[in-house]
Amino acid sequence: MDITGSDLNEYARDILTELGNIGAGNAATSLSVMLHSKIDMGVPEVKVCDFDGLENLVGNPEEIVASVFSIISGGFDAIIAFLLTVDDAKKFVKLAFNDDTLWNSDMGISAINEISNILIGSYAAALETLTETKIRYSLPEACIDMAGAVLSVPCIEYCQMSDKSLIISSDLMIGDYKIDGHLLLISYSNSYDVLLQKLGIGGMNE
């Protein structure tokens, strides 16, 4: 099945939404256990978009975000990313480590990296189970900068393969603390083809 903007059919969209649900659900459970806090999860959004769409994914491309990226390989290529606004990242680190000063120390980035490592690992584990494929994910790396600048990284990587990226975006919300995180699976159209095949709906045409 060739997926472009127009022919990502409803069936494929449903399957990818469900994949996002299970991946992010797994991550939310890990986070909930870690924080002893209730986590709400939005319905994942599946988007096919071009470069500008990716840049605007979390709203204003000039918004400063704390982002953590990890590369998925083994069977299909994707990036799992966790993004928060800087204000939310501060609250998040404070909540997770019960330490007010951590964010402003050298440990701040390590702290957000560590939590994201667990989220990304949980998401990847769900992908692994669903696709019955051995998945490797790189050590996550954090970057705090403008959303547009950090999201241009997957853009550059994937625009070499395709003009369209495919994104499954899930929101994790820690309601009691008004923290809103975005967990993203980003890939390009050809790679999602492989992903869909592994989920057992390959070779299907409209």
Binding site: F51, P61, E62, M146, A149, V150, S152, V153, I156
Partner: peptide, 23 residues
């Protein structure tokens, strides 16, 4: 100006592109 984009401009207008990373 977006990503992989170009535009022309003349005064008094100004021209901008947002969030250059490795670009």
């Amino acid at each position: 100006v977006g990503i992989a984009d170009m535009k022309i401009c003349q005064a008094p207008d100004k021209i901008t592109t947002i969030g250059l990373g490795s670009c």
